[in-house]
Each structure stands twice: as C-alpha cells, then as structure tokens.
Amino acid sequence: MDVFMKGLSKAKEGVVAAAEKTKQGVAEAAGKTKEGVLYVGSKTKEGVVHGVATVAEKTKEQVTNVGGAVVTGVTAVAQKTVEGAGSIAAATGFVKKDQLGKNEEGAPQEGILEDMPVDPDNEAYEMPSEEGYQDYEPEA
C-alpha cells in the first residue's frame, strides 16, 4: 500500500510541476504579447503594419512553449490582441483601416495563427491545408 501511495504522490508532483510550467509559459506569452502591443503603439504610420505582424510573430513563438489545451486559448487571445492593436492603430490615425491585415508588401496577414497546427491532446499534428499553395516548377 505504501508503494501505491508513494507512486500516487510522485504522479501528483509531476502534474503540479507540469501545471506550473504551463502557467509560466502562458505568463511569458502574455508578456511578449504586451511587449508587441507597446511596440505597435510606438510606431509611426509606416511601421504600424509591420508592428502588428511582430506582435503576432512574438506571440506565436511563445505559444510553442505552452502545451496542451492552453495553446488553443493563448492563440485565440493573441489573435484578438493583434486585431485590437490594429483597431487602436486605425482609431489613433497611425494607419488607414484599409491597410490593416496586410503586410508591407500588401499581402493579407489573416491566418497567421489560424494555420498553425495545434492539437490540445498532444496526440497528432496535421499540416495546414494546401489550398493556398501553388506547385513550383523550376525553369529549365
């Protein structure tokens, strides 16, 4: 019985440690998101679009440190934060509304985080759909 109880105690310690790591990862992701939003706020009209992409990228980098179902929630929060940063930029006159959601080359930025393969159960990952990809044929 002692062996059984000791095993359960060790398992509990492992769960607590994993929860603490997840909590730490979420806190880091939130900190990076805040950094990115402050970065966007300090940019001029020309830099705002690039700044919004930076927020998304920093958040995406930190999301990889967070495991399990938390990833889905962090990704949703990050996307809403990026959308909010863009709205703030438009409201303050840093950028025109028609410039939001495009990178410096004018290509749409939507789907940055949505296409990231995420499995809350950590069982399997699927690649994003290939609808947006084109076949590449090298020139002879």
Rank of each mutant, 00 (worst) to 15 (best):
G68Q: 05
A107T: 07
E131H: 09
G67W: 11
L113S: 09
Q24T: 11
A11C: 00
E61L: 02
F4C: 05
T44L: 05
A11F: 06
A140W: 10
Q134P: 13
I112C: 12
V74G: 02
G41R: 10
P138T: 08
A89K: 08
Q99S: 15
A17Q: 08
T54R: 10
G7I: 06
E114G: 11
K80R: 13
G7A: 11
G7Y: 09
Y125K: 07
T92H: 03
K34S: 00
F94H: 07
K12S: 05
G84C: 01
Y39H: 09
E130A: 13
T81E: 02
V26L: 08
V74M: 09
A19V: 10
E28N: 07
A56V: 13
T64N: 07
E13Q: 13
S42G: 11
A18W: 15
Y125P: 13
E123Q: 07
D119C: 08
K45P: 00
K60H: 07
L113M: 07
A124D: 06
G7Q: 08
G86V: 02
E57V: 06
E13H: 13
E105H: 12
A30D: 00
V63S: 02
P120I: 14
S42N: 12
V95N: 12
T64Y: 15
A29W: 09
T59R: 01
E130D: 07
Q24C: 08
G132P: 05
K10Q: 06
Y125C: 15
T59V: 08
V66E: 01
S87I: 04
P138D: 15
A29P: 00
T75S: 07
A19Q: 01
Q109I: 14
D119S: 02
A91K: 15
E83W: 08
E35K: 11
P138R: 09
G106V: 10
V40M: 09
T22N: 00
G51C: 15
T92M: 15
K21Q: 06
V26K: 00
G41T: 07
E139N: 08
A85V: 12
S87D: 13
G68I: 08
K6C: 06
K32E: 00
V40R: 01
A78E: 02
G132D: 10
K6N: 08
S129W: 06
P117D: 06
E110P: 04
K23E: 00
E137D: 07
E126A: 04
E46V: 09
Q79V: 04
Y125D: 08
N103W: 06
A30G: 03
V48W: 04
A18R: 03
G106Q: 15
Y39Q: 07
S129R: 10
K58F: 02
K32T: 06
A124L: 11
G31E: 02
A140P: 13
G51F: 03
G14E: 04
A27E: 01
E131T: 05
T75R: 05
K80Y: 04
A78R: 06
L38H: 06
A30K: 05
G68T: 12
E130P: 12
A107C: 07
A124H: 13
A85E: 03
G68Y: 11
V37M: 07
D98A: 08
G106N: 14
M1T: 00
K97C: 09
K97T: 15
G132H: 05
D121Y: 15
K58W: 02
K60R: 14
M116D: 10
G47D: 03
Q109R: 04
M127A: 12
E83K: 13
